[in-house]
Design a protein around this nucleic acid. Structure first.
Lengths: 107, 107
DNA sequence: AAGCCCTGTAAGAATTATCTTACAGGGCTT
DNA sequence: AAGCCCTGTAAGATAATTCTTACAGGGCTT
């Protein structure tokens, strides 16, 4: 077996990304989250389980309802991977700006 | 069929992320890239194909060798998804700082 | 306590992804 | 042109993931 189940695998699924966006602004119950999608409720429940396992979401039981809210901390792992690359396209952008300035000064 | 094959799916695989880091600083041939991994060469070739398909890598043929180099532009898609969440953990950090200051002023 | 509602989970089929072996195209070198 | 080297690809076995139907636990309400 040896499941992957890391943050990258988690955000690879479009439904799971949509869940993260949905829960970003406010806590929501499992049912409320599921009602936003066409897929069956147990399917969404499974997605919630996956997101919770890699700590992108956190659960909070309130009576018989379970609220899910975002844990932004974990997304940082992906951000840290991307950060060095960001520098690269920033550099390219800066280079483009320089070219544009030179172009305009020749007018 | 209808394969996923998007940027998120691409970076979900640890080998593919390693390839991106490897190629970030310099262009490399397919063989040179493959020699960095334990998996068979065709396996790496497949990964390169996937990365090229979603435009994270670009090919440059030189004689019988193929050089791969990074296209930072595409990673921006992931960065844009993450950016809004970044604000959330920044806010949390700021809140923590505020608490610390209050704590110190009471000493 | 009985019944309803919210939620999670097990099982299994269908889909998708991964990796290896074997082979093919095509540029170099001699 | 013959042979070697670099690379890509097809086929098929294996593994992992996804999704649905059916069911179970446990908190509310009456």
């Amino acid at each position: 077996m040896n499941l992957r189940r890391d943050v990258y695998q988690a955000i690879a699924d479009p439904t799971r990304r949509a869940i993260l966006v949905l829960v970003a602004s406010q806590s929501m119950t499992a049912g409320a989250i599921a009602s936003n999608f066409d897929t069956a409720r147990p399917t969404v429940s499974k997605h919630l389980q996956i997101l919770t396992e890699c700590e992108l979401l956190e659960q909070e039981q309130k009576g018989r309802e379970v609220y899910y809210h975002l844990n932004p901390e974990r997304i940082k792992e992906v951000a840290d991977f991307i950060e060095p690359f960001r520098k690269m396209w920033d550099d390219r952008f800066n280079k483009l700006e320089t070219i544009m300035k030179e172009y305009q000064s020749k007018k």
